[in-house]
């Protein structure tokens, strides 16, 4: 896998019904090598403020057209700048970076659990796993109904979906983790992949442990370099660990067994 820096031309960058932005980029073929779960480090500004790049999961990649897709939520000055880039404009990208999801055996039964904007890296994962003839079921947790529009792309891949909304405007009312807890026994999954709020991923990992299902999750942290040089995005996966892992280089994807969460 070759890491490179390039200018990606923006084809489309619009706010969707979900409230989130979807960006379509035309880039050189670099992304065809990208693994699901890897990220791009994007310069979200022209000058010195905002200064640092921002990491974005690769949401999807279309091999035939060379189009790269990102999905992002307005969070601060960086994403605000990004949301203002017009079609035909360029963004400065470094990537693909980090360690992505590992693939299960072909034909495996896979459960995806997404929460909010954490759905982003799971789409590209779903595409690659579908190609590997895996059977996929997606549990998705959203605040409200409008965010479910992001699920259509999964449906188009033939992924089964089951949703939970906090306000009860669609699907199960409550937390997606409660939905997963109810349904998991009957699904006999070989592996679980999850991305979303950390508390959600922690609960998913705990449920997976109950049923002895292996799995992986994707972590987030403020980053500076994105390439493992600055040692800024450090954290201890388990409290007794001596060393800090770096999210950008050792992750962002980690296996459930590497992690220890404080659920209290």
């Amino acid at each position: 896998m070759i890491v490179s820096q390039m200018q990606g031309m923006v084809i489309d960058n619009t706010q969707k019904k979900s409230g989130w932005y979807e960006m379509e980029l035309s880039t050189p073929s670099f992304a065809s090598d990208a693994q699901p779960g890897q990220f791009l480090h994007i310069k979200t500004g022209d000058g010195n403020y905002p200064l640092l790049r921002r990491p974005f999961s690769i949401c999807d990649f279309d091999k035939d057209t060379g189009r790269l897709f990102l999905m992002y939520k307005l969070l601060g000055s960086g994403t605000e700048w990004l949301s203002n880039v017009m079609s035909g404009g360029y963004v400065d990208i470094i990537g693909p970076l980090g360690r992505g999801f590992t693939y299960p055996a072909p034909g495996a039964r896979v459960i995806l659990v997404g929460g909010g904007i954490g759905i982003a890296p799971l789409l590209y994962l779903a595409r690659r796993l579908t190609e590997r003839k895996c059977r996929l079921l997606m549990f998705y947790g959203a605040e409200e109904r409008c965010q479910l529009s992001a699920l259509n792309k999964f449906k188009r891949l033939g992924v089964g979906t089951d949703v939970a909304t906090r306000d009860g405007s669609a699907g199960f009312t409550g937390l997606v983790t409660d939905l997963v807890q109810q349904k998991i026994a009957s699904e006999k999954a070989d592996v679980i992949y999850t991305c979303g709020p950390e508390i959600m991923m922690a609960k998913v990992a705990a449920i997976a442990a109950q049923y002895q299902i292996p799995g992986e999750l994707s972590l987030e942290e403020y980053m500076a370099c994105g390439v493992g040089a600055c040692l800024g995005c450090a954290r201890k996966l388990k409290t007794r660990d001596d060393n800090f892992i770096k999210i950008c280089k050792d992750g962002p994807v980690f296996s459930f067994s590497q992690m220890e969460f404080d659920l209290n």
Partner: peptide
């Protein structure tokens, strides 16, 4: 952690 944080035209680090 956290060890870094962006500030106006700069960043804080405590590696």
């Amino acid at each position: 952690a956290p060890r870094i944080y962006e500030t106006a035209s700069g960043m804080l680090n405590s590696i």
